[in-house]
Design a binder for these strands. Sequence first.
DNA 1: ATGATGGAAAATGTATGCAATATCGGTATC
DNA 2: GATACCGATATTGCATACATTTTCCATCAT
Lengths: 235, 235
Amino acid sequence: MSRSAPARSAPTASARRNAAPPSATHAEKIRDHLAREIASGHLVPGERLDENEIATRFAVSRTPVREAFRLLAANEMVELRGRMGATVRKMSAQTVIEMFEVMAEMEGLCARLASRRVTPQLRARVEEIHARLVAASGGQDVDGFYDINQEFHEAIYEAAGNLYLAEQTRRLRNRTAAYRRRVTFQPNRFANTLTEHEQVMAAIFAHDEEKAHATMRDHVNLLSDDMRDFIASFQ
Amino acid sequence: MSRSAPARSAPTASARRNAAPPSATHAEKIRDHLAREIASGHLVPGERLDENEIATRFAVSRTPVREAFRLLAANEMVELRGRMGATVRKMSAQTVIEMFEVMAEMEGLCARLASRRVTPQLRARVEEIHARLVAASGGQDVDGFYDINQEFHEAIYEAAGNLYLAEQTRRLRNRTAAYRRRVTFQPNRFANTLTEHEQVMAAIFAHDEEKAHATMRDHVNLLSDDMRDFIASFQ
DNA sequence: ATGATGGAAAATGTATGCAATATCGGTATC
DNA sequence: GATACCGATATTGCATACATTTTCCATCAT
C-alpha cells in the first residue's frame, strides 16, 4: 500500500463504461474490516480507535483511517467527537432494549408488507432458504446457520417491496449484531427459530398481515427477552 | 483558516475540565454550512459537490472538505461513491413514498407504545397542546398551526417512552419535511387534522394499542395518499 | 454516423510533515 | 486529600505534494 507498491494493470476505459465497480478505496476496506470487528464483538463498545495503531496494522497512512472512521460514523457504528477521536458506539442497556423494540416492529412491518406483496418467485426463494436452514440446523456449523438465517430475513425484507424499510432494518440489525449474536448461540435456539420462521411463512403466504406482523415481531421479541436478561447480568 | 491566521487564546485546562465543548473543527463547520445549503434547497438533489470549489470557497485545503462530505453521509444528506465524489442525495418519487410508508408505521408505533406507557403528566401535556391547536386552527397563522402540530407529535413520541424510536422518527420526519409541508397547506387539512388527533388521543388514553396504532398510522397515511397524487403530478 | 482507442486533463485517494489541541504526570497550594 | 497549574508528550486536525483513477476530447476505423 506504499507508494513503492507494484504497478497494477488499470482497467480499460471500455471496461469502465460497462459499469464495472471501481476498486474499493483503502478507507472503504478499513471501514468494512472494522465494521466486522465491531459486529463480532472483537472491538467492544466504548473502545477507542487509535488512528496510528490501525494505520500501522493496515500498513497505510492515517488519512484513509480517518476517512474510514467517518464512514463508520455514517453507519452509526462509531461515535466521533471533534478533536477527541473515535470510539466504538456504546449503548446503554436501555438503548439496546429500545433498539430491539424498534427492530421487532420493523421486522414485523417487513413481514406485514410481504404478506401483501410477496411474488411467487420470492415465495419460492423463502421456501428454498428455509429448507437449507432446516438442513443446517442438524449440523454443528453455527456460523453457517446464522448466515442462512440472515438470508431468510433478507428475503422477507425484499418481499416487503420497500427498499427504504429494508435499508433501515438492515442498518439497525447491523448496529445490534454484536449484542444479538450472543443470544442466538443458545442451545435450543435452532429448533425454536425454525418453528417461528414457519409461522411467519404461513402467515405471509396466507396474506394475513396482522398475523405476519405479530409472528415476526414475536420471533424477534423472543430474542429481545433473552437479551434483557443477558444485558441485566452484564451490567 | 490558513496557518498564518492570528493566534487565538486557547481554552485553559480548567475550562476544559468543566466540560466546555472543544472548538469546532473546519470539517464540522463546513458540514454544518453545507447541511444548511442542502436543507434550504440552495444545493439541489443530485448536485455534485466539488472538493476544490468548496475548499476554495471556505479557504481551506481539501482535507477537511473531504471529511465534511463523510460527516454529511452520516446524516444521509449526501451519497458517497468510492472514487466518484459526493452528490446531494436524490430521492426518487418511489423512495419518498416508501419513506412515508415507514413513517406512518413509526408514528403508529409511537402511538401504540404511548397507549401503554402514557403518564398523567404527559396526558395533560397532550391535551394542553391539542387545545392550543384548536385555538390556532381558527386563525390565519399557518406556520403557527404547523409548529403546534409538531409539538403534538413530539409529545406522543415522548409518551412512547422509547428514546431511540423518538429519535429515528424525528430523523425521518426531518428528512421528509420539505415534501410533507407542501401537503399540509391544503385548505381543509386543519379540521381533518384536529379530528384525527382526537381519535388518536382517545385511543391512547383508553389504552387501546391497536386503535392507537391504526388511527395514528391512518392520520399520517392520509398524508401519504395526498403525497402520492402530488408526486405523480410532479414527475 | 457510430463506436473504439488513446492521451491529456481533471478529480479523487493517499502519504507526509507541521500546527493545534488534549492528555498526563508532577508539583505547589489550600 | 482536593484542586489548580505547568510542561512534556501524545493525539488530532490540516496543508501540501504526489499517486491513482476517472473523465473528456480528439482521432481513427468501420
